[in-house]
Design a protein around this nucleic acid. Sequence first.
DNA 1: CCTCTCGTTGACCGCTCGGTCAAGACTCCG
DNA 2: CGGAGTCTTGACCGAGCGGTCAACGAGAGG
Lengths: 204, 204
Amino acid sequence: MATPKDDPSPARRLTPRGTQRRRQIIDLATMRFASDGYHPTSVADIVDGLGVGKGVFYWYFESKEALFEEILREAQKDLRRGQQRAVANTPDPIDRMERGIRAAVHWSFEHRDLAKLVEFAQTDERFAHLVRNGRAALVADAVPLLEEAMVHGLIPPGNPEQLGYAMLGVSTNLTLVYVHQPGQDPDAIADVAADFCLRGIGAR
Amino acid sequence: MATPKDDPSPARRLTPRGTQRRRQIIDLATMRFASDGYHPTSVADIVDGLGVGKGVFYWYFESKEALFEEILREAQKDLRRGQQRAVANTPDPIDRMERGIRAAVHWSFEHRDLAKLVEFAQTDERFAHLVRNGRAALVADAVPLLEEAMVHGLIPPGNPEQLGYAMLGVSTNLTLVYVHQPGQDPDAIADVAADFCLRGIGAR
DNA sequence: CCTCTCGTTGACCGCTCGGTCAAGACTCCG
DNA sequence: CGGAGTCTTGACCGAGCGGTCAACGAGAGG
C-alpha cells in the first residue's frame, strides 16, 4: 500500500534515506517558494526539480500547506534560538536588546529565503496567525527587558509592547531593503538598526 | 464586437456608467484581495460578487495582474499625496518628518485593505518592483530633510537613506500590528511611531 | 530464499483557473 | 426609425492545479 496507515505527520519512522529525502524537499521548496512565491510554485515544480515522482511529496507531507507551515515554524524557531544564544550571559537589559537586534539582522542575512517567506506568510490569512504568534514571542522576549530598563531609569517610561514592535519593524525593514543589494555588510546594517532602536527607546 | 479595437488600458473612452462599473470592480477586488489574498481570489469571485458576467471584467481590465498593478499604483500615489498635503507649509525639517510619519500611520488606518495589499505585493516578484519604487520615493522625500537636519546640527550625522528605511519600518510595522486590534487609536500609534523615529534619528 | 516495511512511480481524477468570443442589449444621436 | 458605439452575457477553452492510488522496487532481517 502506498498511503501510510496513520496520519503521515506525527511520528513517521524514517530511515536515514527517508530523512534525507524529506530535507531535500524542504530545502528545494523553501528556495522555490522564496523565488517564485508560494501560490505560483506547484507541487509538480518541486518534485520535478528533485527528479522524483509526485507520490514522494505526499509520502513525506500531508499537503503543500502543511509543508509551508512546517517551514515557517522551523524558521521562526531558528531565529528565536539564535537570539537567545546571542544574549546568553548578558545581564544588562540594554546590552541584551542590542545583541538580540544584531542577531535578528544577521539571521535574516543568512536566511534571506526564510525571511522572505515569513513576510509573505504575514499577508495570507491561512498563515498569518503563525507569524503573529512568532512575532509576539519575539516581542514577549523584549518586554521584560524594556520594563527592567524603565524601572532602573535607563530609558524613559512607555508602552513596552509597542516599543518592541517598533524595534522589530526597524530590523525587519532595514534588512528587507538591504539584503538584496550586493555588497551590503550585515554588520553595518546591524549597527544602524541597533543604534536606531536604542536611541528610539531612549537609551543613549 | 466585444473586444475593443485597441489596447483596453490606454485612453479607453468610458461613459459615466462605465466609469462607475470600473470603480465597482476596483473597490470589490481591493476588498477581496485584502481579505482572501491575491492568488486565492479569482476573477470569477469578483464578477460573481458584482452579479455580472465575466466579460465585464475583461472589458475594463487587460488582466487580473493589470488590475492589481493599478490598485497598487493608486494606493502608493494616494499615500504620498496625503503625506505631501500634511507637510505643506512646514519649514522645519524635523516637524516635516513628524507630520509625514503621522500622515503615514493615519493613511494606513484609513486604508487598511490597501496597506495589506502593499505588504503582499512586496513578497511577489511580479509586483515587488512597484513597491520598491514606491518605498524608494517615500525615502527620497525624507532624505533631503535628514540631510538638512544634519547640516544644521539638529541630529547627528548618519546615512540618511538607511535612516529613512528605518523610519518607514517603524510606522509600517506598528501600524500593521495595531490596525487590526479593535479600539486602537490611530493618534496614539502615530504618537509612538513619531516619538520612536525622532529619537531614533537623534532629534529629541 | 521469503517477507515486511519503507520508498517510489506516474497515470489519473475532479476541479478551478485566467482568459476568449460570438452574440445581443442598452443608449444616445441624427 | 436606423445605426454606431458602449456595455454585457455566459458558454467555452486549454492548461494547470492539489491530491490519490494500485503497483512496483529496494534493502534489511530471518
